[in-house]
Amino acid sequence: MPSVTLLGQAVIAGVLIGGLYGLLAAGLSLSWGLLKYINVSYFALAFLSAYLTYQFGTFNGIAPWWSAVILVPAFFLLGVLQHWTFMRLRVTELTSLVVTFGLAVLIESLIQWIWTADFRKYESGFSGLTSKIGPFFVPTLDFLALVSATILAIATWSWLRWTYVGKALRAAAMDPEMASAFGIDHRRLSFLLSGICSAYAAVAGIFIALIATLAPSEIGTWIGVAFAVVIIGGVGNPLGALLAGILIGFAESVTMAVTQPAWAPLVSFTILIVLLLWKPRWT
């Protein structure tokens, strides 16, 4: 039987990694649900942001919070530019998967070209920071990632739910023609949303740089779980993505703590299949 300490630590680890899953999946979820683009390139953008954070911190002495000040607006503009290109090229929901996959490969190659395939670790000096609560340890950076993910998810969800712009975006996603008839300029609003999705990737990347060791090929390891998170959380729902991220993180972590760790992906994808069969209202 696993000890209480082990179980508790596994729960903490799972919930915290769930924050990172939620951050990574939020852009894809919003883009898929409201822009009708299945944008796989957000994973590569997140890693580009991570590498830039590493570069700024390691070689230019720029603290990660200053990197955020630079990267979040820069990636917002990148998202706007990406959306403009997609609109010019008349990318559809189906073709977006192929186009953005190609874009992800291009970004991965660019990362490899600049920083090589070798592993990179941003020694920020914060990675060892932890808080002790009873017998349990809470890593500070992982906790900050969860807090950031929660704040961003609630803010984005509230914005979509209660502001005019948010309602307009949701209306346009549900019925573009009817929304246009009510004077909603979906095209203009979609630039804003695309920028936000990329900005999410930038934030996720900053935390990846602080928490993980970087390699270009690591991009692929997050795609499967992020898709599961988006589908479980419901497309176009940032809060759902966060909660689903925490659910998956929790399930995987507890599985790894009490059984063979190799079963962890099996558990998370079983949850996905069960939810797809059950079809609860939020999915």
Binding site: Q9, A13, E252, S253, M256, P261, A264
Partner: peptide, 20 residues
């Protein structure tokens, strides 16, 4: 004796098991 998936995303639970 444990086996985990390759490539691994999260080593935190395995670290907890080693500590335990």
């Amino acid at each position: 004796y444990l086996e985990y998936d390759f490539p691994s995303r999260d080593m935190n639970p395995i670290a907890a098991r080693f500590k335990d």
